[in-house]
């Protein structure tokens, strides 16, 4: 069931998440200095510095003399920097697949073809301009104690049934992304809606249980680990896995009806000063022989070309023009309104 409420009449379309006119806001910036510098690689990324620093250092170890300036920003600020301000970066790395796709579609990315990129499966690259280097499934994080005495759900229908049958136990203890604020949350929700109508039933059930809405994965996972939440729906498995060793009560599960898989992607902005250097860094990220290294250093699951054969429920979000649909302002408004109507009940 798709709900259309209303949209405004005539709006000049610009970019989904860009509203302000000021320069983009960086969160962190770090210069990975080297001796005998020969070149500088400027990376604009949505990935946390502490996760990617070891990977940058590994890259520098293999390519001596290359200084790396690593700037982090939110996905919407990254989009603003490249789309509106033509900020000069050699690499744009983001988990916001829809925005990355739009950058490529609208001509803001340069082409790169190499032996390394040809090792990527078709679903992990688009137009030789957008390359995925991690595959991060959306999972259910839950507290074991909260599910005591209950069967562990294996798919969404079972979870919905459990929530419906135990309103007292789960009231106020269900968390998910606030899709108005979280790009990842919006991406997961829209993909869920494509895969199955259960999203809307889920939203309704969660709404009735006074679901808590979060902007970011980390707080949501922490609240599950601390027992404030019984479960968190659609959190990034890679982030949850990082909390597992310290929180024995925390567990994650992948649904077997379908598991949405987000791809972290890189592209070469057209403002790059050194396209060969950018290409070299992309080759480093997507190379088949570096996948093990990426997993070890970042804890993020690297691209596995054979994963679709093994994991029947895996649904990597498809790169391509389909992602532009959810960036449409009218579409976004319609979708969010429908979601809010179900989730936030009077």
């Amino acid at each position: 069931m798709r709900v259309h409420i209303l949209t405004v009449g005539l709006i000049a379309w610009c970019c989904a998440l860009i509203t302000t006119a000021s320069a983009f806001v960086a969160e962190e910036e770090r210069l990975f200095e080297v001796e005998n510098r020969t070149a500088t690689l400027n990376i604009l990324s949505t990935g946390d510095l502490n996760i990617f620093a070891p990977l940058i250092e590994a890259y520098q170890a293999r390519n001596p003399g290359i200084e790396v300036r690593y700037v982090t920003a939110s996905s919407s600020e990254l989009m603003k920097a490249l789309f509106e301000e033509n900020a000069e970066f050699d690499i744009a790395m983001s988990s916001a697949m829809d925005l990355q796709t739009k950058l490529v579609n609208d001509g803001f990315a340069l082409r790169h073809v190499s032996a390394e990129t040809s090792t990527l499966p078709d679903w992990a690259k688009w137009r030789d301009r957008l390359f995925a280097f991690t595959q991060e499934p959306a999972v259910l994080a839950f507290s074991k104690s909260s599910f005591q005495g209950l069967p562990t759900p294996t798919n969404r229908d079972e979870l919905i049934a459990l929530l419906r049958e135990n309103p007292d136990r789960f009231n106020g203890k269900v968390g998910t992304y606030d899709i108005r604020e979280s790009g990842a949350g919006y991406l997961f929700a829209t993909q869920d809606s494509r895969q199955s109508e259960s999203l809307w039933r889920m939203a309704e059930v969660m709404g009735r249980l006074n679901a808590q809405l979060y902007c970011c994965s980390s707080q949501m996972i922490q609240d599950v680990a601390d027992g404030r939440l019984a479960l968190a729906y659609n959190v990034l498995g890679s982030y949850a896995a990082a909390h597992l060793p310290d929180n024995p009560d925390l567990d994650v599960l992948q649904f077997n009806d379908f598991t949405t898989v987000m791809l972290r992607t890189v592209l070469i902005p057209k403002t790059t000063q050194d396209v060969d250097l950018s290409g070299q860094f992309i080759d480093f990220l997507v190379s088949g022989s570096n996948r093990q290294l990426i997993e070890e250093l970042t804890g993020l699951p690297a691209i596995d070309p054979g994963v679709l054969q093994r994991e029947a429920a895996f649904r990597p979000i498809r790169l391509g023009p389909g992602l532009l649909v959810y960036l449409d302002q009218l579409k976004r408004r319609t979708f969010i309104r429908a979601w809010l109507n179900a989730m936030v009940q009077p």
């Binding site: 405004v8 009449g9 023009p321 532009l324």
Partner: peptide, 21 residues
Amino acid sequence: QILVDVPYSALSMLGSIAEER
């Protein structure tokens, strides 16, 4: 008011043949 709910398939079908903008 004019309401538009662009179907996902409307644009994704264009991506299924070739990787075009």
